[in-house]
Design a protein around this nucleic acid. Structure first.
Ligand SMILES: [Mg+2]
Length: 222
DNA sequence: GCGACAG
DNA sequence: ATCTTGTCGC
């Protein structure tokens, strides 16, 4: 898939925040259409470099359809709220190598559950002009109640008097994940798709795969 | 000033 | 996220 919109990546802390605020006006929230193919992307880090892997799957069977890797030097530090400026360009490079077209992309981080409603999934979804969903392993933004113990139960993440995502129990009795819609998606679709690609583990299968792959890629290049 | 803080 | 192997428990 191709990147449709661009902005500089070698920016200062204040410029990064300014870009997030500007992109906020481009965010479109709406239900997802039918999902036949889905992609996920993640990165691992070693010796100041990011190793990103993107992969495409059949949504119904979770069969692997395509895979792509990218390596690049890191220049921006990790700052909560600005994760996209650390690993975003590496993730886009990996996604750019995917030949298979997909209906939605999963990211290892927040979507709209972010102080400026512009988490990694929302931000990169806009640049790619593709539907996107954020599936974070821990909390960043929004008030919520502990969801029920059973797999499938969830409770809304509320910020600024509106729902920006949900804490979703993807395995009974296990810590929930934080699912929030990115671009061209809504809360109901995000939760449905995130749960729809779990196969017995807390983390949705496409993200589990790219996480493991990026780690292997980084370790064997060390 | 203090606390919180995706990966 | 990373530094790091085996080990305890469901
Ligand atoms: Mg990650």
């Amino acid at each position: 898939m191709r990147v449709r919109f661009f902005h500089p990546w070698n920016v200062t802390y204040l410029q990064a925040i300014s870009i997030q605020i500007r992109l906020r006006h481009e965010l479109i929230e709406r239900p997802l259409g039918s999902v036949e193919r889905i992609a996920a992307v993640d990165a691992s880090f070693v010796e100041g470099r990011a190793y990103a892997v993107a992969a495409a799957f059949s949504y119904s069977s979770m069969e692997l359809l395509d895979q792509s890797m990218a390596k690049c030097d890191l220049d921006f530090p990790y700052i909560p709220g600005l994760l996209t400026f650390r690993e975003g360009s590496a993730l886009l490079m990996a996604l750019d190598g995917l030949a298979e077209e997909v209906d939605v992309i999963l990211f290892d981080g927040q979507g709209q559950a972010h102080p400026r409603f512009m988490g990694e999934a929302a931000h990169l979804g806009i640049l790619l002009d593709k539907p996107s969903i954020g599936c974070a392993k821990s909390w960043l933004w929004g008030e919520y109640e502990e969801p029920g113990w059973e797999k499938g139960s969830s409770s809304p993440l509320i910020a600024g008097c509106r729902q920006v995502g949900a804490a979703v129990r993807t395995r009974s009795g296990v810590k929930p994940i934080f699912v929030s819609p990115g671009h061209l998606c809504d809360n109901a679709s995000a939760k449905e798709v995130a749960l729809g690609c779990c196969r017995g583990f807390r983390i949705p299968e496409p993200l589990r795969f790219v996480h493991a792959q990026s780690k292997r890629y980084a370790l064997e290049d060390r």
